[in-house]
């Protein structure tokens, strides 16, 4: 996003301190512009903080694809932006397309549930398990959905594919015997401008069969 800070500025971003990510108590601190007046007050607030405040750059820890990762973000940094531009290495599987929660190219899983990462603040993902398309293959093995999409030619330009992989994976995780209608419903928030839907849905049904054959749920 053009109006956000360049990545270079983040690389050596300091850990949040009381002055940047301060803890405060009650209205006094806020009325004074939010500044924590002195160390003793900050310490008192830290004992029983009633609010956490993020100002400017802070380093936060996210759990991405099973591993903890420290990322420096602003409050306005979306999870999508954090994944693509602030992770090391960058996780570019989730795509920036509409940036308005309409197209589904940025879909990731939060605690196993599909969400639009462009409509999620990175800070709101703290304490939750983030799964991107990079995290679904295990030990270099594609998951059943990825494999089925390859076998059913379910991808043309490929831009929407990561989002579909995650929406279908989450759907089959909940219900491996999901019907075609249920799969369509689960994918209603993902768009494919190439129109590969029939192939994607065939792939999803095949992946469901494969999961059931493997004796999954």
């Amino acid at each position: 996003m053009a109006d956000e800070h360049p990545k270079a500025a983040d690389a050596n971003a300091p850990r949040p301190s009381f002055s940047r990510r301060s803890l405060f108590r009650g209205a006094g601190a806020l009325a004074a512009g939010g500044a924590v007046a002195d160390a003793s007050r900050a310490a008192a607030a830290a004992a029983a903080p009633t609010a956490v405040r993020y100002v400017g750059m802070s380093e936060i820890e996210l759990e991405i694809n099973g591993a903890a990762q420290k990322v420096a973000v602003e409050p306005r940094t979306t999870l999508l932006n954090a994944l693509r531009n602030h992770c090391t290495p960058p996780l570019t599987g989730a795509k920036l397309v509409c940036d308005r929660g309409s197209c589904g190219a940025c879909t990731v899983l939060l605690d196993g549930q599909p969400v639009y990462s462009c409509m999620t603040l990175a800070i709101d993902a703290i304490g939750r398990k983030v799964t991107t398309v990079e995290g679904v293959a295990k030990g270099g093995e594609l998951n059943e959905v990825q494999r089925a999409i390859c076998e059913h030619d379910g991808s043309m330009c490929g831009f929407c594919t990561p989002g579909f992989v995650l929406s279908i994976t989450a759907c089959l995780e909940r219900k491996p015997d999901a019907s075609l209608d249920e799969i369509k419903h689960a994918c209603a928030g993902n768009y494919c401008r190439c129109g590969t839907y029939p192939h994607l849905f065939d792939a999803a049904l095949a992946a469901g069969r494969a999961l059931r054959a493997k004796g999954g749920k």
């Binding site: 109006d3 806020l30 903080p49 009633t50 609010a51 993020y54 400017g56 409050p75 306005r76």
Partner: peptide, 19 residues
């Protein structure tokens, strides 16, 4: 998006104080 501060109150009273 313009930059903003994010306040995360832990109680309803703290949230109301912030308004």
């Amino acid at each position: 998006m313009k930059a903003f501060e994010l306040i995360q109150p832990k109680t309803l009273d703290a949230a109301l104080e912030a308004l």
